[in-house]
Amino acid sequence: MSMPFDIDQRMEGRIEDVGSFVQNIVNDLIRMVIFTGELTLVVWDAVRHPRRIRRRETLYYMDMCGTDAVPIVVMICILMGIILGFQSAMQLQKYGGDVFIADFVSLVIVKEMGPLMVAMICTGRAGSAFAAEIGTMKVGEELDALRTMGLNPVRFLVLPKLLAMLLVMPLLTVFGDIVGIFGGMIIAVLKLGLPVVVYYNRATAAITPLAFLLGLLKSFVFAFIITVIGCRRGFSAGNDAQGVGRAATSTVVSAIFWIVIADFVLTFFYSMIGE
Protein backbone atom coordinates (compact mmCIF):
# COMPACT_ATOMS: atom_id res chain seq x y z
CA MET A 1 0.00 0.00 0.00
CA SER A 2 1.48 3.34 -0.97
CA MET A 3 1.70 6.15 1.57
CA PRO A 4 0.27 9.61 0.88
CA PHE A 5 2.66 11.60 -1.37
CA ASP A 6 3.93 14.17 1.19
CA ILE A 7 4.57 11.58 3.96
CA ASP A 8 6.22 9.30 1.44
CA GLN A 9 8.51 12.10 0.29
CA ARG A 10 9.29 13.27 3.83
CA MET A 11 10.17 9.72 4.88
CA GLU A 12 12.36 9.30 1.82
CA GLY A 13 14.09 12.58 2.60
CA ARG A 14 14.79 11.52 6.19
CA ILE A 15 16.09 8.12 5.17
CA GLU A 16 18.33 9.84 2.61
CA ASP A 17 19.60 12.25 5.29
CA VAL A 18 20.41 9.41 7.67
CA GLY A 19 22.01 7.46 4.84
CA SER A 20 24.20 10.33 3.70
CA PHE A 21 25.14 11.13 7.34
CA VAL A 22 26.28 7.54 7.91
CA GLN A 23 28.00 7.46 4.52
CA ASN A 24 29.91 10.67 5.35
CA ILE A 25 31.08 9.22 8.68
CA VAL A 26 32.17 5.97 7.02
CA ASN A 27 33.97 7.83 4.19
CA ASP A 28 35.64 10.09 6.73
CA LEU A 29 36.80 7.09 8.75
CA ILE A 30 38.15 5.36 5.65
CA ARG A 31 40.05 8.52 4.65
CA MET A 32 41.39 8.84 8.19
CA VAL A 33 42.58 5.21 8.17
CA ILE A 34 44.30 5.73 4.80
CA PHE A 35 45.92 8.91 6.10
CA THR A 36 47.07 7.15 9.27
CA GLY A 37 48.55 4.38 7.12
CA GLU A 38 50.41 6.94 5.01
CA LEU A 39 51.65 8.65 8.18
CA THR A 40 52.81 5.30 9.60
CA LEU A 41 54.93 4.72 6.48
CA VAL A 42 56.40 8.21 6.83
CA VAL A 43 57.16 7.61 10.54
CA TRP A 44 58.80 4.29 9.67
CA ASP A 45 60.89 6.02 7.01
CA ALA A 46 61.89 8.67 9.58
CA VAL A 47 62.93 5.95 12.03
CA ARG A 48 65.17 4.41 9.35
CA HIS A 49 66.53 7.75 8.13
CA PRO A 50 66.40 10.16 11.11
CA ARG A 51 68.48 12.72 9.21
CA ARG A 52 65.53 13.31 6.88
CA ILE A 53 63.42 14.69 9.74
CA ARG A 54 63.00 18.45 9.39
CA ARG A 55 64.46 19.44 12.74
CA ARG A 56 63.92 23.18 12.48
CA GLU A 57 60.19 22.76 11.82
CA THR A 58 59.94 20.19 14.64
CA LEU A 59 61.52 22.65 17.07
CA TYR A 60 59.22 25.42 15.84
CA TYR A 61 56.13 23.30 16.54
CA MET A 62 57.53 22.18 19.90
CA ASP A 63 57.80 25.83 20.81
CA MET A 64 54.36 26.68 19.41
CA CYS A 65 52.52 23.69 20.90
CA GLY A 66 54.59 23.37 24.07
CA THR A 67 56.25 26.50 25.40
CA ASP A 68 53.46 28.82 24.31
CA ALA A 69 50.85 26.55 25.91
CA VAL A 70 52.47 26.50 29.36
CA PRO A 71 50.62 29.55 30.84
CA ILE A 72 47.16 28.30 29.82
CA VAL A 73 47.98 24.74 30.95
CA VAL A 74 49.11 26.07 34.34
CA MET A 75 45.97 28.18 34.73
CA ILE A 76 43.49 25.50 33.67
CA CYS A 77 45.15 22.66 35.58
CA ILE A 78 45.59 24.60 38.83
CA LEU A 79 41.91 25.62 38.65
CA MET A 80 40.97 22.01 37.93
CA GLY A 81 42.92 20.96 41.05
CA ILE A 82 41.16 23.65 43.11
CA ILE A 83 37.71 22.59 41.80
CA LEU A 84 38.42 18.92 42.52
CA GLY A 85 39.78 19.91 45.92
CA PHE A 86 36.62 21.85 46.77
CA GLN A 87 34.25 19.13 45.61
CA SER A 88 36.11 16.35 47.40
CA ALA A 89 36.63 18.44 50.58
CA MET A 90 32.87 19.00 50.91
CA GLN A 91 32.12 15.28 50.61
CA LEU A 92 35.06 14.00 52.65
CA GLN A 93 34.40 16.42 55.54
CA LYS A 94 31.01 14.79 56.06
CA TYR A 95 32.67 11.47 56.87
CA GLY A 96 35.78 12.78 58.60
CA GLY A 97 37.98 11.61 55.75
CA ASP A 98 39.71 14.99 55.21
CA VAL A 99 43.10 13.44 54.76
CA PHE A 100 41.96 11.46 51.70
CA ILE A 101 41.64 14.68 49.68
CA ALA A 102 45.30 14.24 48.65
CA ASP A 103 44.70 10.68 47.39
CA PHE A 104 41.56 11.69 45.51
CA VAL A 105 42.89 14.85 43.84
CA SER A 106 46.27 13.44 42.89
CA LEU A 107 44.88 10.19 41.45
CA VAL A 108 42.10 11.89 39.49
CA ILE A 109 44.52 14.48 38.14
CA VAL A 110 47.28 12.03 37.18
CA LYS A 111 45.05 9.30 35.76
CA GLU A 112 42.31 11.37 34.15
CA MET A 113 42.03 15.13 34.35
CA GLY A 114 45.66 16.05 33.65
CA PRO A 115 45.96 14.25 30.29
CA LEU A 116 42.38 15.17 29.36
CA MET A 117 42.62 18.90 30.14
CA VAL A 118 45.98 19.21 28.35
CA ALA A 119 44.47 17.37 25.37
CA MET A 120 41.51 19.80 25.28
CA ILE A 121 43.86 22.80 25.41
CA CYS A 122 46.08 21.34 22.68
CA THR A 123 43.06 20.57 20.51
CA GLY A 124 41.95 24.20 20.67
CA ARG A 125 45.44 25.61 20.19
CA ALA A 126 47.43 23.18 18.05
CA GLY A 127 44.81 21.00 16.31
CA SER A 128 42.88 23.92 14.86
CA ALA A 129 46.14 25.72 13.98
CA PHE A 130 47.37 22.65 12.06
CA ALA A 131 44.12 22.45 10.11
CA ALA A 132 44.12 26.18 9.34
CA GLU A 133 47.79 26.18 8.34
CA ILE A 134 47.53 23.23 5.97
CA GLY A 135 44.16 24.46 4.65
CA THR A 136 45.66 27.88 3.87
CA MET A 137 48.61 26.20 2.16
CA LYS A 138 46.14 24.29 0.04
CA VAL A 139 44.35 27.50 -0.99
CA GLY A 140 47.74 29.09 -1.82
CA GLU A 141 48.70 26.07 -4.01
CA GLU A 142 51.62 25.33 -1.68
CA LEU A 143 50.51 21.68 -1.36
CA ASP A 144 50.48 21.37 -5.17
CA ALA A 145 53.93 22.96 -5.22
CA LEU A 146 55.22 20.39 -2.72
CA ARG A 147 53.81 17.52 -4.76
CA THR A 148 55.21 18.80 -8.05
CA MET A 149 58.60 19.20 -6.39
CA GLY A 150 58.43 15.48 -5.65
CA LEU A 151 58.13 16.09 -1.90
CA ASN A 152 55.71 14.11 0.21
CA PRO A 153 53.40 16.63 1.98
CA VAL A 154 52.87 14.17 4.84
CA ARG A 155 56.60 13.92 5.51
CA PHE A 156 57.15 17.62 5.00
CA LEU A 157 54.14 18.97 6.91
CA VAL A 158 52.73 16.31 9.22
CA LEU A 159 55.81 14.53 10.58
CA PRO A 160 57.32 17.61 12.32
CA LYS A 161 53.94 18.38 13.89
CA LEU A 162 53.45 14.79 15.06
CA LEU A 163 56.94 14.53 16.55
CA ALA A 164 56.54 17.88 18.28
CA MET A 165 53.16 16.91 19.75
CA LEU A 166 54.40 13.47 20.87
CA LEU A 167 57.28 15.16 22.66
CA VAL A 168 55.55 18.15 24.23
CA MET A 169 52.13 16.82 25.19
CA PRO A 170 53.45 14.32 27.77
CA LEU A 171 55.69 17.10 29.15
CA LEU A 172 52.74 19.47 29.37
CA THR A 173 50.78 16.69 31.05
CA VAL A 174 53.48 16.23 33.71
CA PHE A 175 53.44 19.97 34.22
CA GLY A 176 49.64 20.03 34.39
CA ASP A 177 49.65 17.11 36.85
CA ILE A 178 52.05 18.91 39.19
CA VAL A 179 50.13 22.21 39.23
CA GLY A 180 46.79 20.39 39.45
CA ILE A 181 47.92 18.50 42.56
CA PHE A 182 49.24 21.80 43.92
CA GLY A 183 45.76 23.33 43.31
CA GLY A 184 44.24 20.56 45.42
CA MET A 185 46.80 21.26 48.12
CA ILE A 186 45.72 24.91 48.35
CA ILE A 187 42.20 23.77 49.29
CA ALA A 188 43.46 21.00 51.59
CA VAL A 189 45.55 23.51 53.51
CA LEU A 190 43.19 26.51 53.49
CA LYS A 191 39.80 24.79 53.78
CA LEU A 192 40.60 21.58 55.66
CA GLY A 193 43.65 22.81 57.57
CA LEU A 194 45.71 19.82 56.44
CA PRO A 195 49.51 20.27 56.90
CA VAL A 196 51.41 20.56 53.63
CA VAL A 197 53.69 17.66 54.52
CA VAL A 198 50.73 15.34 55.15
CA TYR A 199 49.17 16.25 51.79
CA TYR A 200 52.54 15.73 50.04
CA ASN A 201 53.18 12.35 51.70
CA ARG A 202 49.71 11.02 50.94
CA ALA A 203 49.78 12.30 47.33
CA THR A 204 53.19 10.71 46.59
CA ALA A 205 52.07 7.46 48.18
CA ALA A 206 48.84 7.40 46.18
CA ILE A 207 50.46 7.94 42.76
CA THR A 208 52.10 4.68 41.76
CA PRO A 209 54.68 4.73 38.95
CA LEU A 210 52.30 2.63 36.82
CA ALA A 211 49.41 5.10 37.33
CA PHE A 212 51.72 7.94 36.33
CA LEU A 213 52.98 6.10 33.20
CA LEU A 214 49.47 5.10 32.14
CA GLY A 215 48.43 8.76 32.40
CA LEU A 216 51.36 9.67 30.14
CA LEU A 217 50.41 6.93 27.69
CA LYS A 218 47.02 8.62 27.37
CA SER A 219 48.69 11.89 26.45
CA PHE A 220 50.70 10.13 23.69
CA VAL A 221 47.48 8.71 22.25
CA PHE A 222 45.75 12.10 22.48
CA ALA A 223 48.71 13.82 20.78
CA PHE A 224 48.44 11.35 17.90
CA ILE A 225 44.67 11.87 17.58
CA ILE A 226 44.93 15.69 17.60
CA THR A 227 47.71 15.77 14.99
CA VAL A 228 46.12 13.24 12.65
CA ILE A 229 42.69 14.89 12.76
CA GLY A 230 44.05 18.45 12.49
CA CYS A 231 46.32 17.67 9.55
CA ARG A 232 43.80 15.46 7.76
CA ARG A 233 41.13 18.17 8.03
CA GLY A 234 43.62 20.68 6.64
CA PHE A 235 44.36 18.50 3.62
CA SER A 236 40.65 18.05 2.89
CA ALA A 237 39.72 21.71 3.50
CA GLY A 238 37.70 23.56 0.84
CA ASN A 239 39.61 25.86 -1.49
CA ASP A 240 38.41 29.11 0.11
CA ALA A 241 38.52 31.05 3.38
CA GLN A 242 35.27 29.46 4.60
CA GLY A 243 36.66 26.01 3.86
CA VAL A 244 39.69 26.73 6.04
CA GLY A 245 37.43 27.98 8.85
CA ARG A 246 35.26 24.88 8.60
CA ALA A 247 38.34 22.65 8.71
CA ALA A 248 39.52 24.30 11.93
CA THR A 249 36.09 24.02 13.57
CA SER A 250 35.64 20.44 12.45
CA THR A 251 39.07 19.56 13.88
CA VAL A 252 38.09 20.77 17.34
CA VAL A 253 34.76 18.93 17.32
CA SER A 254 36.12 15.66 15.88
CA ALA A 255 39.28 15.66 18.00
CA ILE A 256 37.31 16.19 21.24
CA PHE A 257 34.93 13.40 20.24
CA TRP A 258 37.73 10.92 19.46
CA ILE A 259 39.76 11.93 22.52
CA VAL A 260 36.79 11.13 24.77
CA ILE A 261 36.25 7.80 22.98
CA ALA A 262 39.96 6.94 23.30
CA ASP A 263 39.90 7.98 26.96
CA PHE A 264 36.94 5.70 27.60
CA VAL A 265 38.64 2.75 25.86
CA LEU A 266 41.95 3.30 27.68
CA THR A 267 40.27 3.76 31.07
CA PHE A 268 38.34 0.54 30.46
CA PHE A 269 41.58 -1.36 29.71
CA TYR A 270 43.35 0.22 32.66
CA SER A 271 40.53 -0.89 34.95
CA MET A 272 41.01 -4.44 33.66
CA ILE A 273 44.64 -4.41 34.79
CA GLY A 274 43.60 -2.95 38.14
CA GLU A 275 44.64 0.66 37.58
Binding site: M137, G140, E141, E142, D144, T148, M149, G150, N152
Partner: peptide
Protein backbone atom coordinates in the same frame (compact mmCIF):
# COMPACT_ATOMS: atom_id res chain seq x y z
CA UNK B 1 58.52 7.12 -10.55
CA UNK B 2 56.20 10.12 -10.58
CA UNK B 3 58.24 11.83 -7.85
CA UNK B 4 61.37 11.27 -9.93
CA UNK B 5 59.68 12.61 -13.06
CA UNK B 6 58.42 15.67 -11.19
CA UNK B 7 61.99 16.56 -10.21
CA UNK B 8 62.71 16.81 -13.94
CA UNK B 9 60.45 19.81 -14.45
CA UNK B 10 59.69 23.05 -12.66
CA UNK B 11 56.29 24.60 -12.03
CA UNK B 12 55.45 28.17 -11.10
CA UNK B 13 52.01 28.85 -9.73
CA UNK B 14 49.65 31.81 -10.06
CA UNK B 15 50.37 33.05 -6.56
CA UNK B 16 53.98 31.91 -6.45
CA UNK B 17 53.07 29.15 -3.94
CA UNK B 18 56.13 29.93 -1.84
CA UNK B 19 56.29 28.38 1.61
CA UNK B 20 55.36 31.15 4.02
CA UNK B 21 57.43 29.78 6.90
Amino acid sequence: EKDLMMRGFGVTYQSGALFGS
